[in-house]
């Protein structure tokens, strides 16, 4: 993540803020300013709840540059309760515990850093819903 990208994306990365289309009321995450459903402008911010379920997942055993020290890590598509699918890592969970449909919640975590002297990137991840995990 470049420095500029890290700054520009802070509201949705850290605050999990998406958008809602004022015309067709579609909820959008990540924000994109033009509604993909009706084609109209959609810049109205909408804070997403951060709750959802695992839609699909994988365990990354070979990592791209910047993530090498983290393998194996779990990446997933999460179906948010507002509707949109979101790509993110899962955390605080072993890969063999994950299943499609698992309730998860958003947390903010350190995702990587730009070398030893560069900026630290924080990003949303999802972890098993704490309340559901406690019932287990």
């Amino acid at each position: 993540m470049s420095l500029a990208s890290s700054w520009r994306t802070r509201k949705f990365r850290l605050g999990f803020v998406g958008e809602i289309c004022p015309q067709c009321h579609a909820k959008l995450f990540p924000p994109r300013d033009i509604c993909p459903h009706c084609g109209g402008p959609a810049k109205e911010p909408l804070a997403f709840s951060g709750h959802g379920t695992v839609y699909s997942y994988t365990t990354m055993s070979v990592a791209p540059r910047g993530f090498e020290g983290q393998t194996p890590y779990v990446a997933a598509l999460v179906k948010t309760e507002e509707g949109p699918l979101v790509t993110a890592q899962l955390t605080d969970v072993a890969s063999d515990e994950v299943f499609i449909g698992m309730p998860v919640e958003m947390v903010t975590r350190h995702i990587n850093e730009e070398g030893d002297d560069g900026i630290i990137n924080y990003h949303f991840k999802f972890r098993p819903e704490l309340a559901a995990a406690a019932k287990h």
Partner: peptide, 17 residues
């Protein structure tokens, strides 16, 4: 990609589903 996904990872998400 910012989440550490590679091309392999993205295809894995499709295959798992």
């Amino acid at each position: 990609v910012a989440h550490g996904l590679s091309f392999v990872g993205l295809n894995a998400l499709l295959m798992q589903r």
